[in-house]
């Protein structure tokens, strides 16, 4: 009998990875974990490949129970994390025994929590990734009672009586401020906004409830806070990067995130940096952001520093796991799904 992770309370959770790379020429958005940094760290803390399937838990309380002993790590937004009622730390590996319940509740200051399991979980794959694509209808939200197949088990690695964790890996955690600062670089169409471009940096913008993994809509406190396009004329459809800041309707900013369609016809005022996008993956409706202008060189340096910290963590994890003889044979990657059942049945009319 294969081992499973039983989901008791699904809230809003799904199985994710870092995204569907290399398919944008076919019009497929990249998708994947919205806070890439927290997702990478969760996997690395379990000795997994950074891109292994893991759980992305959004805003609502969540609980699950493994049918075997496992090693897990929980990263992302601060939350109350317990294993069978005992408070446990985020951003460290945790031993969870067969039958114990992992509970994540009270997610705050950010909206996304990541739960990785050593050896990963089984997930169907489409074009090389398990990342849900809501427009294609691929991948679904988890439901109460779902059972996810587990690839491996891991004997307990903690004090047998007191359950004191053995790990102090000092993972590079995010900061979760009340007012987010999101770094951007100048967009390719900056000049089309004339003197109004600077408004992006003058006021705070509040994320509207009409925001999701495709894009975040943000309003200033008055319409005059929003930059305006001063140039006229049609823009031919062209590829726009994840992170593009646009002003489609004139009164709101639209910041494209990982689910964005690959082409668009609006001018790009600014582009959120790679580290800024991970931060933006934590900003929920009603929260405010302030944009900060960075050069491309500064943004690249920040991203490399963040990735370098994850790389250093990976080395520490490897050392510790070797000492503790925790087996981390490469996680099996996502399994292919039989086709073509994920193509919806042809419907003649709605």
């Amino acid at each position: 009998m294969a081992d499973t992770l039983t989901i008791h309370r699904a809230g809003m959770a799904s199985v994710q990875d870092l995204g569907r790379f290399g398919r944008s020429r076919y019009g497929l958005p990249v998708n994947g974990a919205l806070d890439q940094h927290s997702a990478r760290v969760a996997n690395v803390l379990c000795g997994n490949d950074e891109g292994a399937p893991l759980l992305e838990i959004t805003a609502l309380d969540f609980s699950c129970t493994p049918s075997t002993d496992v090693l897990v790590a929980v990263t992302g937004a601060p939350a109350d994390l317990t294993v069978d009622g005992v408070v446990r730390p985020q951003w460290e590996p945790l031993s969870v025994r067969s039958g114990e319940t992992i509970r994540i509740s009270g997610i705050r200051h950010g909206i996304r929590v990541y739960l990785a399991v050593l050896g990963s979980v089984n997930a169907p794959s489409l074009q090389g990734s398990c990342a849900p694509d809501t427009i294609l209808g691929f991948g679904r939200s988890l439901r109460d009672g779902d059972e996810l197949g587990l690839q491996r088990h891991c004997p307990p690695v903690d004090h047998p009586e007191f359950r004191i964790p053995l790990f102090r890996l000092r993972a590079p955690a995010h900061h979760f401020p009340t007012l987010w600062t999101i770094d951007v670089t100048d967009g390719p169409d900056l000049t089309e906004f004339g003197d109004t471009a600077d408004r992006l940096f003058r006021s705070e913008f509040t994320v509207s409830p009409q925001s999701n993994h495709i894009g975040l809509r943000m309003a200033g406190s008055s319409p005059g806070d929003v930059p305006r396009r001063v140039a006229t004329g049609e823009v031919l459809s062209r590829g726009v990067p994840v992170g593009a800041v646009e002003v489609p309707a004139g009164d709101e900013l639209l910041v494209l995130h990982r689910g964005r369609g690959v082409t668009a016809g609006y001018p790009v005022l600014a582009v959120v940096t790679a580290t800024g996008l991970s931060a933006l993956g934590q900003v929920g409706p009603g929260q405010s952001v302030r944009f900060r202008r960075r050069t491309v060189a500064e943004a690249v340096a920040a991203h490399r520093a963040q990735r370098g910290a994850v790389h250093a963590l990976k080395n520490r994890v490897r050392t510790v796991f070797d000492v503790l003889r925790i087996p981390t044979s490469p996680a099996r990657t996502v399994s292919p799904v039989p086709t073509p059942h994920h193509l919806p049945a042809d419907r003649r009319t709605s």
Binding site: F21, G22, S24, R25, V30, L236, S237, R238, G239, V240, P241, V242, V262, T263, A274, V296, A299, V300, H303, R304, R307
Partner: peptide
């Protein structure tokens, strides 16, 4: 660019008169 398979490049979007190339700036650079 597809044929070269440049390290770090993970998205190539050619449209009408424009080509977007997305990459991981840890693995390559501008």
């Amino acid at each position: 660019l597809d044929a070269i398979r440049l390290d770090g490049v993970h998205g190539i979007v050619p449209t009408y008169d424009s080509l977007l190339v997305e990459f991981d700036c840890t693995d390559t650079d501008h």
